[in-house]
């Protein structure tokens, strides 16, 4: 049990996917203009990452390992994750328009996101069991959401500041992202291992 808690905390804070592993930078910079959209994106990531890690864990265990074709891991995972997300999006759109409004529009953005693939691959590399894999995916996506929301909050405030022209837009965004990443480095050593 304590093991699972450690995995979770480690994935959220210490090895935050965005700010420490630098995975998923694209949506982190792209969809973080407003806290509202950042939160929606985060929720979508939580859902997709968890589902993807479940499915890929089974694919690895019962197909790739079974046939001894581990070298096809990347292509198989991408294939599965992409089609899975598309499928979920279509089902959502039809069955639950409300949920689709808040979550669904973000789904196409993360079909082939490196953070999602990263979770699937790391699960295998670390040799996690099924429960551990799910907890790790949950932690990674929670960490992603946390980073997104924090960053969006910062950007909303930066928008209000009279910045020098040369500093506006991407420049100040990247500097802020760097500072936020530095701040997260402070969690290093919180969890051993």
């Amino acid at each position: 049990m304590i093991e699972l808690v450690l995995i979770l905390i480690s994935a959220v804070f210490v090895n935050n996917f965005v700010l420490a592993r630098f995975l998923g930078i694209c949506p982190f910079l792209g969809v973080s203009k407003k806290v509202e959209t950042a939160l929606g994106m985060g929720m979508a990531v939580i859902f997709v990452m968890t589902v993807a890690s479940v499915v890929t864990w089974f694919i690895q265990r019962y197909i790739l390992d079974y046939f001894g074709i581990e070298y096809l891991q990347t292509i198989a995972f991408i294939l599965v994750i992409a089609s899975l997300v598309q499928l979920v999006e279509m089902v959502l759109q039809k069955t639950s328009p409300v949920l689709y409004q808040s979550l669904g529009i973000f789904l196409p953005l993360i079909t082939t996101n490196c953070a999602v693939l990263g979770v699937a691959v790391l699960n295998i590399q670390k040799g996690y069991g099924f429960i551990e894999a799910v907890v790790f995916a949950l932690g990674a996506s929670l960490g992603f959401t946390l980073a997104m929301v924090l960053f969006a909050g910062l950007r909303e405030r930066i928008d209000l500041c009279p910045l020098p022209n040369s500093f506006r837009g991407a420049a100040v965004t990247l500097v802020t992202a760097g500072l936020l990443s530095l701040a997260f480095m402070g969690f290093a050593g919180l969890v051993k291992g």
Binding site: I63, F67, I75, L79, Q86, V91
Partner: peptide
């Protein structure tokens, strides 16, 4: 290798195809 990746692809494609019609 060919069969398994092809199989996964086929299943996914079929599922998506059906879903696209149904949903």
């Amino acid at each position: 290798a060919v069969l398994s990746i092809g199989g996964i692809g086929f299943i996914a494609a079929t599922a998506l195809g059906i879903a696209a019609k149904k949903f």
